[in-house]
Design a protein around this nucleic acid. Structure first.
Length: 598
DNA sequence: AAAAAAC
């Protein structure tokens, strides 16, 4: 199998945007005999069958259907970052007495310290606000977005935040954020989660997903039954867990969640690797309601028994498919024993093993009809990539405001390639920096800041930046289309990427982009030999399709996965996924050759 | 085969 190592360039004009279409997919499925995770302090104890079902006790849940060959998750990304929320209170919290507000322990109300104003950096006015400009959401672009929901008794969507009783404190934060009305994913997802239903949602990054899962969680914690957490132990007992695939994304989610939970008494803590653990431990000791974490650090904390998931009521996996793609699946299974969510059928099936009567939600791509982002594909030989990039940068400089370099995000395949390109760009007089996994966390965060601020207007990135990062002045797709602002995304294609020609042209077509004739010819040719493997499967459409609709006996709970979910199917769904979103880089399989940039 | 995720 061969696919694309192609690199892509994301330019911004005034305010740019990006698409990348690098090939990437996870390592082969790792085979583990998964057993339920038993926290150290519980090891050696008999199964906790007497523990109230309201608590998601990890140790006594039969570890789901036995793993079988062919049952594993296939690697890959999807077009939209999937997010899944599971309401852990099922069956309905029976033991709740009272259930008033703020009468739990562990939140801020426990401490005496003043809460730092999370809006402080957003605005210099006294009353904290979060300028809508920063949300980058063009609500007009949302009006005609197709939304698909499926499942039993789907709670109806709302059209205003006021329709749901989120509580005064949360409403105040919504005002501070200047969220006027909910985005499509919020309109649908919030009532679903508030109703205590499990949810598998496909929506682009930037579509308001973070708020869509944070609001119900914060609201649920505030209104939920009081939680008695063990005292005198150094173990933290969060009520909600949000997992994300990269450290930067966790940081970002944490920042947003802090705004949403300001003065609600709900405490949000973030934990991720690459940073000293001590400060994170201190934060945890001060109490945590919502823990945002990357999987590795969370596993570490669990093993140290500094965090327990016994009281988790809500679990949210952001970019769930991505984490599975990254090989986190064993940890996620271990940590959560519940679900993941995504577009590819394979991952839906896995998720459905852990979700109960869940609702599937797919939100269409924003901007597909607004055409404010131009997505281009250019034929560029490996050896010409750098000079071609240079041409683009010069053109951008000439078109833009004099003296004000627009931000440009360049995706490359490898870490080495990123460093090398950075060096070359700097030599050519284009200040650039990089973000990739070989850099220290400090370097990564500095690079991101330096890029966002414009000090280093070119950021060369690997997959680490491929998802979810919100760069307001370079709105990744989904945050684009703000009035008058356009973006340009250019992908470099050459003969090494032949196998991607079909999915690529399909996606461009779907995004109302002009498909170059030469690409169509490649696509026609490759689809012969490819035996249709790259053809989109029947139900792909806009935002995903509930795999339960594709009636198949083996889909049932506990059903054996079987060959139906073979590699070919995965390649189809994921392959189609990548381009349109700009970050579904896992979409395409593996290319045949290395890029000249690497 | 690349990258990402703990120490």
């Amino acid at each position: 199998m061969s696919s694309w190592w192609g690199d892509s360039v994301v330019n911004s004009e005034g305010s740019g945007s990006g698409v990348n279409i690098n090939g990437s997919s996870g390592p082969g499925p790792q085979r583990f005999l998964i057993s339920a995770y038993v926290p150290p302090h519980l090891r050696g104890h008999p199964p906790l069958s007497d523990v109230p079902a309201t608590l998601p006790i990890l140790s006594d849940i039969p570890s789901g259907p036995p793993r079988q060959p062919g049952n594993e998750v296939l690697p890959g990304g999807n077009r939209w970052g999937g997010a899944a929320v599971r309401d852990m209170r099922r069956p309905p919290f029976a033991g709740g007495r009272g259930g008033g507000w703020n009468n739990r322990t562990g939140g801020l109300d426990r401490g005496r310290e003043r809460e730092v104003n999370p809006f402080a950096n957003d605005d210099d006015t006294k009353e904290p606000t979060f300028d809508e400009e920063n949300t980058g959401i063009n609500f007009d672009a949302y009006e005609d977005i197709p939304v698909e929901t499926s499942g039993d008794n789907v709670p109806p969507p709302v059209s205003t935040f006021a329709e749901i009783d989120l509580g005064d404190a949360l409403n105040a934060n919504i005002r501070r954020c200047k969220y006027v009305k909910p985005t499509p994913v919020q309109r649908h997802a919030i009532p679903i989660s508030v109703a205590g239903r499990d949810l598998m949602a496909c929506a682009q990054t930037g579509s308001g997903k973070t708020a869509a899962f944070c609001f119900p969680v914060i609201c649920g914690i505030m209104k939920g039954p009081p939680t008695q957490r063990p005292r005198g132990v150094r173990t933290a007992y969060p009520l909600a867990l949000i997992l994300s695939p990269t450290r930067e994304l966790s940081v970002q989610i944490h920042e947003e969640a802090r705004k949403f939970s300001y003065q609600t008494g709900v405490r949000v803590v973030v934990a991720y690797g690459g940073a000293p653990i001590h400060q994170q431990l201190r934060e945890l000791e001060r109490g945590v309601d919502i823990l945002v974490a990357t999987p590795g650090r969370l596993v570490d904390l669990l093993e140290r028994a500094r965090v327990s998931l016994q009281m988790i009521r809500y679990l949210c996996l952001d970019e769930a498919d991505r984490m599975l793609d990254m090989g986190f699946e064993p940890q996620i299974r271990k940590i959560t024993m519940m679900f993941s969510a995504t577009f590819p059928k394979e991952i839906q099936r896995l998720a459905s093993d852990f979700l109960f009567n869940y609702i599937f939600l797919a939100v269409g791509r924003v901007g597909s009809s607004t055409d404010l982002i131009v997505q281009r594909v250019e034929f560029v030989h490996e050896s010409d990539k750098r000079s071609h990039l240079m041409d683009l940068l010069h053109a951008q400089k000439a078109n833009g405001t004099p003296g004000k370099q627009a931000l440009t995000l360049v995706f490359v395949e490898t870490k080495k390639g990123a460093d090398s390109l950075e060096h070359w760009l700097c030599m050519k007089g284009f200040p650039a920096t990089t973000i990739h996994g070989d850099r220290t966390q400090q370097e990564r965060e500095l690079a991101l800041r330096s890029f966002k601020s414009g000090a280093t207007p070119i950021l060369v990135a690997t997959d680490v930046a491929a998802r979810g990062l919100d760069i307001p002045t370079l709105p990744i797709i989904g945050r684009t289309g703000r009035a008058g602002k356009t973006g340009l995304a250019t992908a470099f294609f050459n003969e090494n990427n032949t196998s991607l020609s079909r999915p690529l042209s399909d996606l461009m077509e779907e995004a109302n982009q002009e498909v170059p004739q030469w690409l169509s010819r490649y696509a026609t040719r490759s689809s012969y030999g490819g035996g249709g493997r790259n053809r989109r499967s029947g139900g792909a459409r806009f935002g995903g399709r509930d795999f339960r609709r594709d009636h198949n006996p083996s889909h049932g709970k506990g059903g054996r996965g079987g060959d139906h979910y073979g590699v070919a199917a995965a390649a189809v769904d994921m392959g189609v996924a990548g381009y349109g979103s700009g970050y579904g880089r896992g979409a395409y399989g593996y290319p045949g050759g290395h890029s000249a940039w690497d």
